[in-house]
Design a protein around this nucleic acid. Structure first.
Lengths: 222, 222
DNA sequence: ACATCATTCAAGCGATAACTTGAATAATAG
DNA sequence: CTATTATTCAAGTTATCGCTTGAATGATGT
């Protein structure tokens, strides 16, 4: 028995928390929540250098939040299991519940107005079946191609600004992006509502949608 | 809108994780899970200096994991809400699910044998009602006095070693302590089983028991 | 075997965190 | 008001983290 098994245990728990304590690693986890990725793709998406990215990934692996496998020359990383996603979610919930700072940042995004309640995935599913809703996927094109909600239109923020005049104010619009950590959908909804459109955010992003076992299309149909 | 609202948000989430990334702060949270405490009491229990303890508490407060109120000269800290406890639990679950290291430490405590499954709080409640179980509270006397499971006997590890011969191997024994972070109950069960007794750990500790809304006695009846 | 590409390792630098010490602030008692 | 007690603030030291750079490793194809 070591000198202090208690401390050793706490040290292990702290290691997991420490792995989540750098914005760069949270970005990596958000990317990995979309699906497994190689080191270079992750470095590209997050703007980190390859070496730096690799080191962060190893730290996440040490905390067992992600695992990796070799595929030829490439090493592919992925989230270990759903617990990792749960932990990220709870972290976000606690931060958003408690930190006035976060409120202010999110309010800044929606131009001072309070954003409306997000749409549940269940509701969106039903509306899609009725065809009574326009769904916007506010993610980069490659992520859209890798999988998106059936019938969703992929468009960037600037593209959205451009097509605003062609949209019907009576139609319900639902925007989604990578998930709770991602602010694209927040920004899209803010932009649309500023023009008087009936836009709301989806609760969660594509990872949560997929987790629910709902339909995900992998080919473009824009 | 700031230069990078996305990074600012991630920074906030990271702040919460960082607050959980030091063993000293996990110890403080574990203490606070037992109930609200003043700075000096926390410093005593954790072995930190007063000043150091105060600084850790402020960091926890910045992350909104704890809140404080003044009571005369003293400042009393407490967990902000149940979310804090949930976050600690999930952190522990992920660490224990994933880290072989943790397994090895826990196995080291139980002398090489695998520990039996913990007893659910529901089962223990029923057994207590039947009177068919001996309950051991393996925490310091002051924490026992502040609240314990009805009918539990308070005893330290060394006291347990001493009374081992007087215990009936046929009787079910259930030990509990502060909660999942605490290893007293692990050690007690290991010690008892080494003597052939029928001992198991309670799932969770007193905070979880109380959270369930079960009976907690505050006077000694040892 | 050799060349190539993706990833990892290793060393170094600047910034940040943890702990200590000693002084400052706040609330209460005399 | 002054003294006392509990807590917080501030400065300084040591250790650790995050990032960069350049070399090393591992798998693949010629």
């Amino acid at each position: 028995m070591s000198i202090s098994p208690k401390l050793a245990l706490l040290e292990e728990y702290a290691l997991v928390a420490r792995a989540l304590s750098a914005p760069a690693r949270l970005m990596l986890l958000e990317q990995l929540a979309q699906g497994e990725r190689g080191v270079e793709a992750l470095a590209d998406k997050t703007g980190l250098t390859i070496a730096n990215c690799s080191q962060h990934l190893q730290q996440l692996r040490r905390a067992a939040l992600v695992t990796s496998r070799r595929d030829g020359k490439a090493v592919i990383y992925r989230l270990t299991d759903a617990k990792t996603l749960q932990l990220m979610d709870l972290l976000r919930i606690v931060a958003e519940r408690n930190l006035a700072q976060v409120e202010r940042i999110l309010r800044g995004l929606s131009g001072g107005e309070d954003a409306p309640e997000p749409v549940s995935r269940e509701d969106l599913s039903a509306w899609i079946a009725e065809g009574s809703v326009t769904v916007l996927d506010v993610r980069p094109a490659d992520e859209y191609a890798a999988g998106h909600i059936s019938g969703a239109h992929n468009m960037t923020l600037t593209e959205i600004e451009r097509i605003v005049p062609t949209l019907d104010p009576a139609t319900e619009i639902v925007a989604y992006c990578r998930g709770p950590y991602c602010i694209y959908a927040h920004q899209a909804v803010a932009a649309l509502r500023k023009h008087g459109l009936n836009a709301r955010r989806l609760d969660g992003g594509l990872p949560e949608w997929r987790e629910d076992g709902r339909v995900v299309e992998t080919a473009a149909m824009n």
